[in-house]
Design a protein around this nucleic acid. Structure first.
Lengths: 328, 328
DNA sequence: TGCTAGCACTATTATTATACGAGTGCTAAT
DNA sequence: ATTAGCACTCGTATAATAATAGTGCTAGCA
């Protein structure tokens, strides 16, 4: 257990380091705390033994360790009230009645990314939660047409397909069959239903059913598994600890990989959760702060991704504010 | 006018430097050319006077200047036949009958980006060339619905809109009116037609026409002006001359700005054009190689964007090959 | 017992000196 | 015209030095 003063020292070091990423010395702390630098050094030493602080070399100041950040987040941090200015900027987005919820979310995350200089992410509901609502087909010319797939949650995808020598009537017949037979099916089960429920029937009623079946099969097999929206990836370029190209390459490749981002959603805790450094699964210098949201049938995950040296207090309040606003 | 030997020297220096970005000395060249390093030095000096070579400092080897690259591209370079392997990779994409042309283009540009380690770009036709084909509306719940806009060239966009207390019938009536009245209009004129041709009519026949008009007006005013597709932006991270974050930031911001990319299309030459360094409008160390393509009513621009120190011969052949394949 | 002043010690950073090497330009001889 | 030869230049690498910001430890004081 940490003493009261140790807590204060840890808190000061973390907050100092977040403001300015250089190791913090005992003198700096002693100025704020009313005691000598020697006393602070003793406390620092204790905190280092507890694994909460680290040195970069034998005679350097201290830097928070991963556990140090953890302790700070779990016990020391006090959520920082948002400034009126920040709130105002977000409110203008939330109060735009023209925009659909999903657009409001993306727009406000853009605002947050710009305010904080961190990357933001929305993960939409996964495909097994999305039900097929209907498909539409629009012919473009003799051989190509566009298939539009709409889910019950308003997710839309379209694909250009090519068909040789098939009359529009046959296509429309197929579309109607699909809409009648499998609307309401979870997207990731559509392929199966297509094969076992639609294929036999269009085989009977539709000419060139083979080609048509293949085309539609492709449309659904390519359907995006999950809506992923990453805003402000380039903000990482402004963070000093990501000043080398190697690191940027590695972080970017993770942020562009939906599989990796999907891991953020793995635990379905509804509260705000903080994944620090190695817990982030992205990079040891990265922190992910995330929360789930739900408004009617629209649900998903919001995340703010930045350096481990993140303004935790500010970000947590912002996420809380976002969540509240979205949920009503 | 350059002598025969000067051409050879310039060519060797450019190609050497492209392979390995360190200044080229006279000794290296003299090995390939059958003459002494002193002779080469004289020629180099002449080429420097002609503005085709540069030194990084008084006693360094030579580096091609922008004009040097220009001269190389215009007079010295011999297009390099593509390797069978490269062709094969592209052919598997081109021969995929399932894919629509636009998908083939994007997929093949992905392949080219991976083969060359450069960024690739497709610019689709601009909105004044895109005609509105039809719009569709799909209701999602009581207050929100999705409007899907399709152009004659198969470009699809959708938007989520919110309407309070408007019956589906009224919406459908409006959609039908729009489809009947202004299908065939260039996308960027739709807003005007909407105001002068549609608004007066729905004003008569549709209840709550004000709200509906506003919603549709928004849909079209947000319509993307131009299809832009940038593939492999991160390839810049692997190029040594873009090893510092500043530069990467600047290049990325340009590559993400459609306005800037649009400048590539400004001259409508149908042949392959090469914009070197400052001509690229992106960065002094960047080269853009582009060509227009046209297949039926699908036309646009292809570009390969990389360092000024680009494998010009290889890239030009690839673009040529792409263009040929797309155009039939 | 807890706090602190003082001091020896350590590692980083900046500065300077030095040597080395790859390259040039020029001159004189072929 | 070409080239061998040489003095010269500048960038890079290495080592030496000093300055600085920090530490840990000890001993004395409240």
């Amino acid at each position: 257990m940490l003493t009261d003063r140790q807590c204060k020292v840890l808190k000061l070091i973390v907050e100092k380091y977040i403001k300015n990423p250089i190791p913090v010395g005992s003198k700096t702390i002693s100025k704020t705390l009313k005691c000598s630098s020697a006393t602070v050094r003793n406390e620092m030493s204790a905190l280092e033994d507890a694994g909460l602080l680290e040195k970069t070399h034998t005679s350097s100041g201290r830097v928070p360790s991963e556990d140090g950040y953890r302790y700070y987040v779990d016990h020391l941090m006090e959520p920082k009230k948002m400034t009126g200015e920040d709130m105002l900027k977000l409110q203008t987005v939330f109060h735009n009645q023209q925009l659909a919820l999903s657009d409001v979310i993306v727009k406000s995350l853009q605002v947050i990314s710009d305010m904080t200089n961190y990357t933001t992410v929305v993960l939409g509901s996964t495909s097994h939660e999305n039900l097929l609502k209907q498909i539409e087909v629009v012919p473009i010319d003799d051989v190509s047409m566009i298939v539009i797939v709409i889910t019950d949650r308003g997710h839309v995808e379209h694909k250009n397909i090519r068909l040789q020598d098939i009359s529009l009537d046959e296509v429309k017949k197929t579309v109607n069959l699909i809409n009648n037979l499998i609307a309401g099916t979870p997207i990731d089960e559509v392929s199966i239903k297509l094969e076992y429920e639609v294929k036999p029937i269009i085989g009977k009623y539709v000419k060139q059913h083979e080609q048509l079946y293949n085309a539609f099969y492709h449309v659904f097999s390519d359907f995006t598994n999950q809506e992923v929206n990453v805003v402000g990836k380039n903000k990482f370029l402004t963070q000093p600890e990501f000043g080398n190209i190697q690191k940027i390459q590695s972080v970017f490749s993770k942020l562009e990989n939906p599989e990796i981002l999907h891991k953020i959603e793995e635990d379905d805790d509804n509260n705000i959760k903080v994944y620090i450094g190695s817990e982030s699964k992205i990079d040891d210098d990265v922190t992910v702060i995330k929360t789930r949201f739900k408004n009617g049938n629209h649900e998903g995950t919001l995340a703010i991704i930045g350096p481990k040296r993140m303004e935790y207090d500010r970000v947590v309040s912002m996420l809380e504010y976002m969540k509240e606003n979205i949920e009503r």
